[in-house]
Computed example of a mutant assay.
Amino acid sequence: MLRGLNLTLRFLLELVALAALGYGGWQAGWSGWSRPLLAVLLPVAGAVLWGLFVAPRARYPLPDPLRLLPEWVVFGGATLALLLTGHPVLAVVFAVLAAANRVALRLLDTSTGGATLPG
């Protein structure tokens, strides 16, 4: 049951990360055309990175601990986007939940996909 809850939380954190990247992109836009462009490009870049290296059916799955790098880029980027848009409490809550979820998944020996190390 705990594994299912943590995997559900993980999925929700992924969605929140993409939303935060989109919001951050919108807020970072300087002119009329850059706002929607960044609001689309930042979450798309996060989703592509996630899909290539982290997702359960990633095209190029990375083994632990290497897969932490793209995870940190996406979750860290979302945290930074929340911080820079004036939402420090949300940023801290998001970062703590993401870190706690990663630790819980590891302690519960729950896979989120990825490759296995040889040997």
Score class of each variant (00 low, 15 high):
residue 104 A to W: 11
residue 97 L to V: 04
residue 44 V to F: 12
residue 68 L to I: 05
residue 118 P to L: 10
residue 65 P to E: 04
residue 62 L to F: 01
residue 97 L to N: 05
residue 84 L to G: 09
residue 103 V to T: 09
residue 27 Q to T: 07
residue 1 M to Y: 08
residue 20 A to N: 02
residue 88 P to F: 14
residue 108 L to Y: 08
residue 32 G to P: 00
residue 56 P to Q: 09
residue 22 G to T: 02
residue 18 L to K: 01
residue 64 D to P: 03
residue 98 A to D: 07
residue 87 H to G: 03
residue 73 V to Y: 00
residue 79 T to V: 06
residue 91 A to Y: 02
residue 64 D to R: 07
residue 40 V to H: 06
residue 110 T to C: 13
residue 94 F to V: 09
residue 12 L to F: 13
residue 112 T to W: 11
residue 43 P to K: 13
residue 7 L to F: 01
residue 10 R to Y: 15
residue 95 A to M: 10
residue 12 L to A: 13
residue 116 T to H: 15
residue 83 L to K: 02
residue 7 L to S: 03
residue 114 G to L: 01
residue 93 V to M: 06
residue 114 G to M: 01
residue 11 F to K: 05
residue 41 L to C: 14
residue 58 A to H: 03
residue 102 R to A: 14
residue 68 L to Q: 09
residue 81 A to G: 04
residue 36 P to G: 10
residue 57 R to Y: 09
residue 35 R to K: 15
residue 75 F to G: 00
residue 12 L to N: 02
residue 104 A to I: 08
residue 68 L to P: 04
residue 1 M to H: 12
residue 64 D to N: 07
residue 43 P to Y: 14
residue 69 L to R: 00
residue 60 Y to W: 15
residue 26 W to F: 12
residue 38 L to R: 04
residue 105 L to H: 06
residue 87 H to T: 05
residue 97 L to Y: 01
residue 110 T to W: 07
residue 62 L to E: 01
residue 53 F to T: 00
residue 49 L to R: 02
residue 22 G to I: 01
residue 84 L to N: 07
residue 80 L to R: 03
residue 82 L to W: 01
residue 118 P to S: 11
residue 33 W to N: 10
residue 64 D to L: 08
residue 6 N to T: 14
residue 103 V to L: 15
residue 4 G to E: 10
residue 106 R to K: 12
residue 72 W to G: 03
residue 107 L to R: 15
residue 19 A to I: 12
residue 41 L to H: 09
residue 52 L to Y: 06
residue 50 W to D: 07
residue 83 L to N: 03
residue 77 G to F: 09
residue 95 A to F: 07
residue 12 L to T: 06
residue 97 L to P: 01
residue 76 G to E: 02
residue 11 F to P: 00
residue 10 R to F: 15
residue 46 G to M: 07
residue 117 L to N: 11
residue 17 A to Y: 04
residue 92 V to A: 15
